[in-house]
Computed example of a mutant assay.
Amino acid sequence: MTETKNTNGARIAPTADVDAHAHVGDGTRVWHLAQVREGARIGRDCILGRGAYVGPGVIVGDNCKLQNYALVYEPAVLEDGVFVGPAVVFTNDEFPRAINPDGSLKSADDWHAVGVTVRTGASIGARSVCIAPVTIGRWALVAAGSVVTKDVPDHAVVAGVPARRIGWVGEAGVPLRRAEDGTLRCPLTGAAYREVGDELISVVEVAS
């Protein structure tokens, strides 16, 4: 892209629309036709792809990636290292209507926005829809095309409509495999975990 630099050292395409009252962190890249609304705060070293939308007051942590045409509506909060795939939608209205019962057009005063929270390291696959209010746990993975209607535990892999847990994933993003000792292990890093109810707990191994 043809780039311009703001005072924070962010690289913003001339065709992007970044409100003067938004904050974009050092090293962040905002690509063609992306829009960042007033009061939004984007952290350091993020990537906002073509046509991505970040609503007013949305908070995005450091090292996040919002792929092409991701729609992140307020009051969403994304912690550090979050991946949001192409055409993902975060909703913000539990009971959407264009008009009130009397037929008048709804205004900002006629509804209460609710947000999606995504914890550190989680990934949301392409064309998924997260129905607010929900929280996506740390290092969780939402499979492409899923519709998330309830909270997702840390490290969970969820898929489907509505999304259901189908497994567990490690910090490297690879599904965990069950070992002979009953633990779940990452095939890349060797990190070990144990299921405790509906949660995954990291196992600290002591060297012999």
Rank of each mutant, 00 (worst) to 15 (best):
T2M: 06
N6E: 04
G9D: 11
A10S: 13
A16Y: 00
D17W: 09
V18D: 04
H23I: 04
H23G: 11
G27E: 07
G27V: 12
V30T: 03
L33S: 02
L33I: 02
A34D: 12
A34I: 07
V36Y: 10
R37V: 03
G39V: 03
G39I: 08
G39W: 15
A40K: 05
C46L: 02
A52E: 04
V54L: 07
V54Q: 02
G55T: 03
G57Q: 11
I59P: 02
G61R: 13
N63E: 09
C64G: 14
K65I: 07
L66C: 11
Q67M: 08
Y69T: 00
L71N: 11
L71H: 11
P75I: 01
A76G: 10
A76E: 03
L78F: 09
E79A: 12
V84Y: 00
G85I: 08
P86C: 09
A87C: 04
V89T: 00
V89H: 00
P96Q: 09
R97Y: 02
I99G: 06
S104M: 07
L105R: 15
A108L: 06
A108S: 12
A108T: 02
W111P: 01
W111A: 04
H112F: 13
A113M: 06
V114Y: 10
V116H: 01
V116Q: 00
T117S: 13
V118R: 02
R119I: 02
T120L: 13
G121K: 08
A122C: 11
I124L: 06
R127W: 01
S128T: 08
V129Y: 05
V129N: 10
A132P: 02
P133C: 10
P133R: 13
T135L: 08
V142S: 07
A144F: 05
V147D: 10
T149K: 07
T149L: 03
K150T: 15
D151A: 07
V152F: 08
H155A: 00
A156W: 08
A159I: 11
A163N: 15
A163S: 07
R164W: 06
R164Q: 15
G167W: 01
E171R: 15
V174E: 09
L176Y: 05
L176E: 10
R177T: 07
G182Y: 12
T183D: 10
T183C: 08
L184D: 12
R185S: 04
R185K: 04
C186N: 10
L188I: 14
T189E: 01
G190W: 06
G190I: 07
A191I: 12
A191P: 05
Y193A: 01
G197S: 03
L200P: 03
S202C: 10
V203F: 11
V203K: 05
V204H: 13
V206S: 14
A207M: 09
